[in-house]
Amino acid sequence: VTGGSSAVPGQWPWQVSIVYDGTHVCGGSLVSKKWVLSAAHCFPREHHKDMYEVRLGAHQLDSFVPKAEARSVAQVLVHISYQQEGSQGDIALLQLSNPVTFSRYIRPICLPAANASFPNGLQCTVTGWGHVAPSVSLQAPRPLQQLEVPLISRETCNCLYNIDAKPSEPHSIQQDMVCAGYVKGGKDACQGDSGGPLSCPVGGLWYLAGIVSWGDACGAPNRPGVYTLTSSYASWIHYHVAELEPRVVPQTQESQPDIHLCRSHLALSSAPARGLLG
């Protein structure tokens, strides 16, 4: 996480660390005693599930404390539609080898139902042990980092990603994605946060609105973080884990248009007479 701060132990008790061959590679979110949600791109086909371990209840990655638990992975379910970075379906379900015991430091986050809608501008929080800047690792003892990020609509996010877009690197924000972050940059998720939670508060509960998926560098201007929209996969999750009940998210706040955040939109609309091309 770039531009964030250290969390307090137990503040995000659903955050897990996914370790491959002894090294932290991704984040994840605990959604029940035996299941964790993460990103599909954290589980390349050639990696065997026995090489993964899930650490729960951790705060500093470099200091293992009694309240933290570790589990091996019994099953990895990667969504069939995931192909490569930026494609749809960047979501994975992990079954733990044994259930965990909930505690002050290990608790599940709520899964939003399929029809859930979180308003533009809602202040959510992204957490993780990832880089603090492109290719700059979090320093030992690596405390969990947190960052409040406002949600940005898909339309506005597409508009932002078209500013100074490189033809060789087309980016499009798909139906199953949501953006969050800052137009001016400097505060964002980064490598190593992938798979971790975008936690959004509604009605006194935290919901897993998104899963850290991709972005252009970290904290670059006009390049907010892009997250897999968890509610798009409520039925896929329920199909594989029948006991997991997605929750209806109460509609508390109207979603306000946020297209004004995208400078290039203003340029286009302010000069139609000169026939500016899109």
Binding site: V8, S32, F102, R104, R107, P108, I109, L205, W206, R247
Partner: peptide, 14 residues
Amino acid sequence: AEAEALCGVASQAR
């Protein structure tokens, strides 16, 4: 359901 009923709550206030 008991487990899920406890979802989304962090005991440590900010």
